[in-house]
């Protein structure tokens, strides 16, 4: 595998150092324990929003720290949850007196570490609420599994929730907005190739040249089914159908449509997918009120994409449109 990596064990640290110098106007990086924090944190009277997770999903989460989105992000090792000591220090650094919201993707490791961190922060007198994102419809049988994974909706929830916090809404209201976005959002992903974890140095799974995985997560874990490659129209239909049926999305609904690249797929191809998605939704009289196309929640160098739909109303649209200024998302400024 050819990689722009000096030493696998240094990748996360070097990327943090680079973010600190490349985006010094927006963020600061704290080391040992590691977290990225908004340059002007803590913002007095504003709910602080913290997220975090394993590295390898860039720009999520560190790239979304800044005005209008996250106040801090804790990066773990590649595909490994960060630890409670990081989360506690980040929580303290962004507590502007209005409490702190933890946005946690539904993975066993993330849940356990954030739970320990919330216990520690409460012990220090900080009001903490946690919202767990779990939007992946590929996980069907949530009674007998760890539940649906938090994937694409996390990016959209962080943006919309960040806008609500910027309006100085109280902790409970900010958390409710986050829960609403998660409850109204669904995602399904697919892979054309595996990804290569730096420490492993070889692809996590083998996928023959003419096959694809449907229902993948964002950690190189295989999906639920493997099949022969199909046309983009067929693949898009296979991703959208379970999303539409699950919520369900109905004729007349307005949605935020998010076509996300897994890290190794060019934007040109993501637009081809968006094109098919727009046709399918148009045919069902579902209105794309807003959209996001690009690689925002990635799985290292995996080729493939995910589709996320969130049912929108006027309030969510206005929060989506609100100004945001982060390394990874920036508009309205």
């Amino acid at each position: 595998m050819k990689k722009l990596i000096n030493k696998p064990e240094d990748v996360v640290k070097e990327a943090l150092q680079a973010m600190a110098s490349a985006h010094a106007d927006l963020i600061k990086v704290h080391y040992d324990p590691n977290f990225i924090v908004r340059a002007d944190a803590p913002v007095k009277g504003k709910v602080g929003i913290l997220s975090g997770g394993g590295s390898g999903h860039e720009p999520m989460h560190g790239g979304f720290v800044g005005m209008g989105m996250l106040d801090a992000a804790c990066p773990g090792a590649v595909f490994t949850s960060p630890t409670p000591d990081q989360m506690l220090e980040a929580t303290k650094a962004i507590n502007g007196g209005a409490g702190v919201l933890h946005i946690v993707k539904n993975y066993t490791g993330d849940i356990l570490n954030f739970e320990m961190a919330a216990d520690l922060a409460k012990g220090e007198g900080i009001e903490v609420e946690a919202v767990v994102t779990n939007d992946d419809v590929a996980v069907q049988d949530s009674l007998y599994t760890a539940g649906r994974r938090g994937v694409g909706v996390t990016v959209l929830a962080e943006k919309i929730t960040g806008a609500a916090a910027e309006q100085k809404r109280p902790l409970k209201a900010v958390a409710d907005i986050c829960r609403k976005v998660n409850a109204q959002g669904r995602t399904m992903g697919m892979a054309l190739t595996s990804c290569t974890v730096p420490a492993a140095g070889k692809p996590t799974f083998d996928l023959p040249e003419d096959e694809m995985e449907i229902g993948i997560g964002i950690h190189g874990e295989p999906g639920r089914t493997r099949m022969k490659l199909k046309t983009v129209a067929e693949i898009t239909e296979m991703l959208v159908k379970p999303i539409l049926e699950d919520l369900p999305f109905k004729s007349g609904d307005s949605v935020l449509a998010f076509v996300n690249g897994m890290g190794g797929t060019p934007l040109l191809e993501l637009y081809v997918v968006y094109n098919e998605l727009a046709k399918i939704l148009g045919g069902r009289q579902i209105k794309i009120a807003r959209n996001l196309v690009g690689s925002y929640i990635t799985s290292l160098d995996m080729a493939g994409c995910s589709i996320t739909l969130v049912k929108m109303d006027d309030e969510l649209i206005s929060l989506w449109d609100a100004p945001v200024k982060t390394p990874g998302l920036r508009w309205g400024i």
Binding site: P33, G54, G76, A77, T80, S81, P82, T83, P84, D85, Y107, T108, G109, L112, N113, E115, M116
Partner: peptide
Amino acid sequence: LVSTVGGASGPL
């Protein structure tokens, strides 16, 4: 272990 392992194994 809690502060260095991460994942689910760290807390467990």
